[in-house]
Nucleic acid binder design. Structure first.
Lengths: 139, 139
DNA sequence: TTAATTATGACTGTTTTACTCATATTTATA
DNA sequence: TATAAATATGAGTAAAACAGTCATAATTAA
């Protein structure tokens, strides 16, 4: 159970975007240079963050990315969901997962338990905003 | 970020072991039949749970496994650690991971943040005991 | 003695991770 | 208006993790 590079890089990128002035943009190249991340890999992550309405973009020369919301309104939960998928998932929970082969698929005594745990973690992640992350890294 | 079959099967096995009377054992075969889990796969998980002093075993005919502690003293944190490794790990945290290739390996502004988050999750998982899980699945 | 059981380790197919590469599309500006 | 700089999209890939299987050794109750 861990946060992959997707989540970590996304947070790094968002921190950089939070640092620039309003109405300014940062290119993927800028961010990847500052944070030492592969440019093309980060590009894909930023596209996902855009689809989740966390960042916006300006195409073309002098273009780049910017935060679509205020740091206080961007939660860790949103970010992880955008780049990694469901924040916490016991795979027996998602009914549309066709590959699962569980004896109790339709009547699982543990579903309630995993579901509650999942909500607890989502709740924890929802309370952590980009604003707070910015505060912590500047301590 | 999810609980793999290792963690889920381990919980299932521990629930079965909690159901039997004191001084009785359950064989891997018994557990795997009841829970619909691969016998040999579960075997490996039980060995890990044994190394973590969560279960004990009796070898030979009529042998099997039993809980080494009371359900109230077995936490989800212990179980996941035993079968999956660290409960929550942002990979940039573990200094002995030689494959990591991060620009900020020795001076990372995010280390404190990931570390705190990791402790929050460990704390959450430490409060959930097998006793509580037994209570939830019987509701 | 033997059948039943745990213990250990090597092996395997599938999925996910962590990328790269190629190419299309958009747009500020010279 | 041409062009360089940027995002957008999708295919491909090597390595690791996941989810097991298989073979065999060691132990022990009956």
């Amino acid at each position: 159970m861990n946060i992959s590079t997707k989540g970590r890089y996304a947070i790094r990128a968002l921190v950089e975007l939070a640092k620039v002035k309003d109405n300014q943009v940062l290119s993927v190249k800028d961010i990847s240079d500052i944070q030492g991340i592969s440019t093309t890999y980060l590009e894909h992550l930023l596209v996902k963050l855009k689809k989740a309405n966390i960042v916006g973009s300006q195409r073309g020369a002098k273009g780049g990315f910017f935060l679509e919301k205020k740091p206080k309104d961007i939660t860790l939960c949103d970010v992880i969901l955008a780049v990694e998928g469901p924040v916490f998932l016991s795979k027996c929970l998602n009914s549309n997962n066709t590959t699962i082969d569980c004896k109790f698929i339709n009547d699982c005594e543990f579903q309630g338990f995993w579901s509650k745990l999942s909500k607890s973690i989502e709740n924890l992640f929802s309370k952590i905003t980009l604003k707070e992350i910015l505060g912590e890294i500047n301590e």
